[in-house]
């Protein structure tokens, strides 16, 4: 790592990462790009659930890659093994890095110990998207659900994440995070050895 040649043949991993976190891009630019992504995906699917799946796949691609970025940036990298702490990390650190704010609320489902809900009152990807009346269940935050899923799966917390708008508060999106049983079993085990 000491000799950093100027040749273009050097790999991505030879370049410094830290300074790049400060770059910002106009919200409009992002909205335009995201709208093209939604349109493109829309043109290649036949149903709404397929569209959600497509957007979620794209999000997974991004979420998985955020793991490295965040880990490298930590002063004291630590691998989080406990479930709730990890979710808090997503609510705070991941959200702050991506959206400059924390996610609004994190709750556990009362009926199921493997299901959690993360609430975001104003998802940036939905800000400029108007949902057609006949497709009221469309929620482009499926992309963000994909980011969460990619991030969790990549850190060995197998789960499925789904995004939906709250009925009484359409601007708020809830991300339903359903962990696999193995994750819950492991977490209980870690609890008992503590």
């Amino acid at each position: 790592m000491t000799t950093r040649g100027k040749r273009a043949a050097e790999t991505l991993y030879d370049k410094p990462l830290s300074s790049k976190g400060k770059l910002e891009v106009n919200l409009s630019t992002y909205a335009f790009l995201f709208s093209e992504i939604v349109q493109y995906s829309h043109g290649r699917v036949t149903s709404l659930s397929q569209l959600h799946e497509k957007l979620s796949d794209l999000g997974k691609h991004a979420g998985f890659r955020m793991i490295d970025v965040l880990c490298l940036r930590e002063k004291t990298p630590k691998r989080e093994t406990r479930l709730v702490n990890h979710l808090l990390y997503i609510q705070k650190t991941l959200w702050k890095t991506l959206f400059y704010k924390e996610a609004d609320r994190l709750e556990q489902a009362t009926a199921s110990e493997s299901t959690f809900y993360l609430f975001e009152d104003d998802p940036v990807v939905n800000r400029f998207i108007s949902v057609p009346k006949d497709q009221s269940s469309l929620n482009c935050a499926a992309f963000v659900a994909g980011i969460i899923e990619g991030f969790l799966n990549g850190t060995q917390f197998a789960c499925k994440v789904r995004a939906f708008a709250l009925k009484d508060q359409p601007s708020t999106t809830a991300f339903e995070i359903k962990f696999e049983d193995s994750v819950i079993t492991r977490d209980k085990m870690l609890e008992s050895v503590k």
Partner: peptide, 11 residues
């Protein structure tokens, strides 16, 4: 009015 450059480039 801004989004993170990382969110942008990863998207």
């Amino acid at each position: 009015r801004k989004v993170s450059g990382e969110l942008f480039s990863l998207t």
